[in-house]
Design a protein around this nucleic acid. Structure first.
Lengths: 216, 216
DNA sequence: GTCTATACTCTGATAGAC
DNA sequence: GTCTATCAGAGTATAGAC
């Protein structure tokens, strides 16, 4: 059904990787791609192995030859996702120019929504369900990172280099505004006309918005 | 499980309402409330009648005495929701002061996220799934409304009464920023600490944001 | 109106032939 | 590695007693 897309940034070095043949790797990737399509639209419980197998062009038992069970597939997808999900925020550089840095962060997030809308929806689905599977990650990884960057934003504001705004809401606003174009793409498409690229015009708008918001 | 909450604005006059006894109405409302809880977290396919029945404190057959099937419950919830969902935007008044009107619209949307987070998540789930059940509504009701209000915003911008910004992205930004506090409440709670109200500080932040964005 | 029992389908997962 | 056959359990829905 779905055309193969560039693999979502996979870093080497995750634990427990057994050696796999070329065909193994290839089929696992086909399955993960199909699973991403299904999980990102229907959530974990709403997705079925039948649907994933159909999407992948494999039989259900064959699919379960490559992955132990439904949960493992979903976990692997989330692991791949989270590995990359925080990179844009991590790159916010204390040594850079504040407004340039924040603007660049916003652009990186917007680019993720453009390149990886399904990953964004997978994440959105997980949060809507109360984040049962990634709660540990959010508490252990995301929260400290956000706290650190919020401190940085506060410092910048204190120094008069950006306007004095709540740093947490600033970060949330970037998440909300950029991810919206991926998560609510269906709605935007129906409103703007179906041939229309949902992200058309988004970047200039967000640039204007944050330019005006951040000016000291 | 969940405490009964104020009923989401229900307008009278929808079609096909048979006369119902007091106990009928009461139980239907209990079921709808339980169903809202479950559908808004797991989506249509991820929700089960068992879970809804448990949440409602009724047996499954009893639940199906009040509603023909799973689909009917979901449809009734969406119908109630959509009935009210567009009101904040409808109220955007051409005769009012542009900045005041847009700010008031933002506040109404934020208030909906505060008062009806589950309804917001129900809507988000439906859109994530590609809006299969509300596509007709979006095309027939939402789209023309947005087009009309976008025209109004354009007129205001042409008259120099607000900054010249893309009206569609302006509307999307209000949706994204306000609904985010309901849809991603789980994440925000884990980041800001669980005792914390997710919406704390949101209104001043959004006021500052739109004040700066809209100033001509 | 509400319950127990049950029919029937879907879904996740396994066995075993090839 | 891939398939057919199959199972156990969950899930939707109905029958029928009370």
């Amino acid at each position: 059904m779905s055309a193969p897309r560039p693999e979502f940034a996979r870093k080497s070095g995750s634990a427990g990787q057994r050696p796999r043949s070329r065909i193994q790797k290839r089929n696992r990737q086909i399955i993960l791609d199909a699973a991403l399509e299904v999980f990102s639209t229907h959530g974990f419980r709403g997705a079925t192995l039948d649907q994933i197998a159909l999407e992948a062009g494999l039989s259900k038992p064959n699919l379960l030859y490559y992955f132990d069970n439904k949960d493992t597939i979903h976990r692997d997808l989330l692991t791949q996702l989270l590995d990359t999900w925080l990179d844009p925020l991590r790159m916010l550089d204390p040594r850079g120019d504040p407004q340039t840095e924040i603007m660049a962060y916003m652009r990186r997030k917007l680019e993720m929504s453009r390149a990886y809308p399904r990953e964004s929806r997978l994440f959105a689905n997980e949060i809507l369900q109360g984040a049962p599977r990634i709660e540990p990650f959010i508490r252990a990884e995301l929260r400290p990172l956000v706290d650190a960057k919020a401190q940085l934003l506060t410092d910048w504001a204190r120094a008069g280099r950006i306007a004095p705004i709540d740093p947490y809401h600033l970060i949330f606003s970037i998440w909300a505004l950029t991810q919206h174009y991926a998560d609510f793409a269906a709605q935007i498409g129906m409103i703007r006309g179906d041939g229309h690229d949902p992200l058309d015009g988004a970047e200039p708008f967000l640039e204007a918005l944050y330019t005006r918001l951040l000016a000291p």
